[in-house]
Design a protein around this nucleic acid. Structure first.
Lengths: 209, 209, 209, 209
DNA sequence: CCGTAACCGAGACGGTACGTCACGTCTTGAG
DNA sequence: CTCAAGACGTGACGTACCGTCTCGGTTACGG
């Protein structure tokens, strides 16, 4: 007996190896060519696959690159370094390291740019990248609360809003520093950033404003 | 007497009106088509200009769109609302309003994406957009210092680093909220953002973490 | 006892119904789409058959269409109308009627065109179509000789050459009129044609040259 | 002042050399590949021309091949050999020689096949090939009449119909012999054919039926 | 009456060519 | 020397069929 959702569809099944080969080829091509010079024909050739096979699985360049890039962010982990500030520093450094890789730099902003005119793509980015990494904020907050560094949540919905805010502040700052200002998010910068994030602009510190 | 760089070159002079028409047509086309569907042939047609005229002035789509988008951010002003937090809120709301316009959304991220592989483009973005708006951070800090909300700078180079950090944090958060998370940066969100920015995560507040 | 070439092969025998369905579907598709838009995938779908089934039986589009078209010409009969001229008129009108059907028009010239570069296909056309219809010339000549309208053959090989010549003249004229000049081979035309064929150009007649 | 029909159209004019190169490349490709394997991309490459240039001038393969093949038939001439039969023999041998060339064999039947479903193509064939060669029939008839071999025309419209008939009979027989029966239209065959055409089936002769 | 070999449908596969689009350059005639 | 117009070579697009293959499953002989 077969599952209702996959009732042993007739015909030759899709090659599982092809998917992996295509996504890997996409990342390699992003490194070598960047977004705008990347062509699906070239990706197919690199993956040893026909162009039609690629189009059977993805609607176009945008969708393919979202999937290829999303995998890069799944390796992010929240280390336990003993304090909220140190934990954030740890994860931000990992994030910065990923954004230093050319396949992420080229691909990420491009699909975000495309998503401004494509609701389905926006949703795909949200599902595959954004929402998936929000776990890091939730984890970090829970850990800080258990340490007594942060108060418990006043209300569930408020907690969600705040988590989203923190995510936008952390991810936004790193992305902007790395891709728009085009300066490295190195250890020194990360330390300064986390100090401001945790204690605020108005709090005097070693390098406070 | 003529400048050495433009010694009254012989032949018909370039039309001054053409430049303005082309940039305006570029923004209109960005609104209607977005970055990826915008073509230089179409821009030329909208501007009532030949393609050759356009290529005589800009090297390509990237450069043209940087110029067309950069003008949008020149209207940003830092209002004097009586406190650091209120001043930031004011300018962030203006920034969010610009990022809500389709010509900015489509164009900005796209040229940033392209700039990851093009040093000259990166420099052009920095010059035309990033550095030009950092004035807002410097202005706001000076005003807050004169009010006594912030301490004076310890050292000039440190001051520069901090200004850059604040710029990345503010611009990054708004851009990420607007374009990546794809949620509106409305008054409520801006208020929450500025509270965290000014007082820090760890400081309890009406909706602190 | 079984033939050596088909020794009751083991396994499931081929479906006899499939062949008929495929040939019928081919003719239907020729009517609707013409030669160049006809695809084997479409024929298979119309016949309710898998593409592999079709390829098991025919090497390709050319062979399939030759078989589908050849059947159309098997309905030709030589009527006995009392004179050589009248007999020819009768069979030519039948031939013209077949060439007026779209499945014949589209298919016949196309396979002839293909056959100019494919010896096997040329042979298949000769066997399935050309040689099979030459019987009409032989029958007509024999009947005319028995009536005394034509002299008996001087020599067998000469007789063959002449039969071939007549076949090319009759079939060629009707095909050219119908498909190249693209004018109907109606009764009036057929009457004029047969008069010239039987009596020659130089013989004066009601509408002689 | 410019002609009304070609008022010195603005912009770069079309290359006259390209047309000739494309038609020549088409014939070469027909010889090497035949109709079905001929691709417009290949023709463009052979002609040293971009595919788009080709599509700017012809709607597709059919139109291109009609033009390429039509030129082949323009070299036909009606020799004056002293009698109607000899004149016809002369021109038929030339026609047979052209149909022996692979570029004519492959191309001619294919476009006729396509024309069965395309009125515009049918018209193009008629204009470029059929009507253009009917001149040979008119010329031959006039010459035979001036020699007294044929009577003068009874009526103009009747004369047209007869000329069409003769054209279909001559061209049809040669085409059918050459391409369908796939036998050479050599001198012996041509002599037999012209005898039957001029004197008719029923007239006894050295190899009459 | 059971195994097995060839059949069947479905559909994914690597290819090839399609006809279109935009690119950035070049070639006109006019100003 | 610039301008509008538009043809040019180039290269990628996304689609359509090709003919092959791989599945799970069926059918009828022959042991």
């Amino acid at each position: 007996m077969q599952s209702r959702t996959r009732p042993t569809r007739a015909g030759r099944p899709r090659s599982a190896a092809a998917d992996a080969a295509i996504l890997a080829a996409t990342r390699t091509a992003l490194v070598e060519l960047g977004w705008s010079r990347l062509t699906l024909g070239d990706v197919a050739a690199r993956a040893g696959v026909a162009k039609t096979t690629l189009y059977r699985r993805w609607a176009g360049k945008n969708e393919l690159v979202v999937d290829a890039v999303a995998e890069l962010f799944d390796e992010l982990r929240l280390p336990d370094r003993g304090s909220l500030a140190a934990d954030i520093e740890g994860v931000v450094l990992q994030f910065a390291a990923i954004l230093a890789r050319p396949e992420a730099r080229s691909g990420l902003m491009a699909v975000v740019a495309e998503s401004t005119r494509d609701e389905a793509l926006r949703e795909r980015i949200r599902t595959s990248i954004v929402d998936r990494q929000k776990r890091l904020v939730l984890e970090g907050r829970a850990r800080a609360q258990s340490r007594g560094e942060l108060p418990p949540e006043p209300a569930p919905e408020e907690a969600d809003r705040t988590a989203d805010l923190i995510f936008d502040m952390v991810a936004g700052a790193v992305v902007h520093r790395t891709l728009v200002s085009a300066e490295p998010a190195d250890e020194e910068w990360v330390r300064s950033f986390v100090r401001v994030l945790v204690t605020g602009l108005a709090t005097p510190g070693p390098s406070g404003m």
